[in-house]
Amino acid sequence: MTITAPSPEQDAAAFRAEVERDGVLERLLSSSAQLSYDPEKEVDWDAPLDPLHDGVNPEWCTLYGTDIWERMSPEQRATLTRHEAASVASIGIWFEMLLQQMLLVDIYDKDYASSEFQFALTEIADECRHSIMFAKGAQLIAGRSYLPHPRLHQAAKLLKLTARNEVAYTSILVAEEVLDVMQRDWMRGASVAPQVKTICKIHVVEESRHMKFARHETIEAMRGISEVRRKASALQIASVGYFIVKSLVQPDVYAEAGLDVKEAVAAAKNNEHHHALMRLSCVHLMDFLSEAGLLTPAAKRLYRRVHML
């Protein structure tokens, strides 16, 4: 057997790639050290909540623009938006717990001295704070939290055990990109509760680093993979996106606002206004997936079913 040593050009290219990789991660670590927030101090948890303050911008409510919305009182609308915000926050906690475990599994064998290992732990620490922040926020604005469907809740345990490389990091990106666009709008909403605005601001700033890390790791993982693996990964990632988006607003939110759940679910399912906002929130994500080779025909079909594409 003949072993061919890498050429000087190949050595140089590998060295440049490693330097660039470390540079990106070092900058992310530096950003974390300089620009991170303590929700316990930043959010005014003790301030009274105006009953007419919204949890999300009304335009983002799943029933906005429907006949049901037109029949609702201002109090009902505010209540619904707060419970929708609590539902989104709760599903965020559920997925953040999964991603923390995926990250721990992925870095288990990595070099402890590497920037990759250290930033992954930094991200996990951020996500722990975010989950506590979301839990307190849901309790504040809605008095409760929400869980995904029990079967999905159980099935998702397989994801944390099996997701590796591009599947783990792109799944993280799919979830965070959708929330990022929503929260950038909510944090500027005139009628949105001040506490929710602050929560959104903290999450947007800190998640921007996490999304950059996820993109970086996805690109690294995609180098030289087989066509079979690429297509399989694309479908698995799309399945994650499908179930996350489908779970964001749980049906119980409509009952909390005094609505007929069956009628409200049907109206939300056919609300073209909300579908258009979802597609808008996923534009940059879909561009990235396409560039990375992860927007296959099978994946597109799943994304279209939940109006991400």
Score class of each variant (00 low, 15 high):
K160W: 11
P8T: 01
A120G: 01
I3K: 10
G55R: 01
A12N: 07
S171K: 05
H216S: 04
V43P: 07
K136L: 03
H153N: 12
I93Y: 03
L104E: 10
P150C: 06
D109F: 12
M222C: 11
K160M: 10
I202N: 02
V249P: 05
G224C: 02
E26Q: 15
I68S: 00
R184Q: 09
V265N: 03
P58V: 00
K157S: 10
L25G: 14
F213I: 04
L285A: 01
I237V: 15
E42R: 14
S7I: 06
C282T: 14
M211P: 00
D11Q: 15
K201P: 00
K136Q: 12
S30K: 15
R164T: 09
G23M: 14
L80F: 01
H307K: 07
R301C: 08
Q76R: 05
R77C: 05
F243D: 11
V228C: 10
E84H: 12
P194Q: 11
R144I: 04
A156R: 13
A5F: 10
V228P: 07
T66G: 09
G241Q: 03
S87R: 10
K110Q: 10
G224M: 05
V19N: 08
K269I: 04
Q183Y: 08
R215P: 10
S145F: 11
P48G: 12
L63N: 00
P48K: 07
E291P: 03
E166H: 12
E123I: 03
E9M: 11
A33L: 09
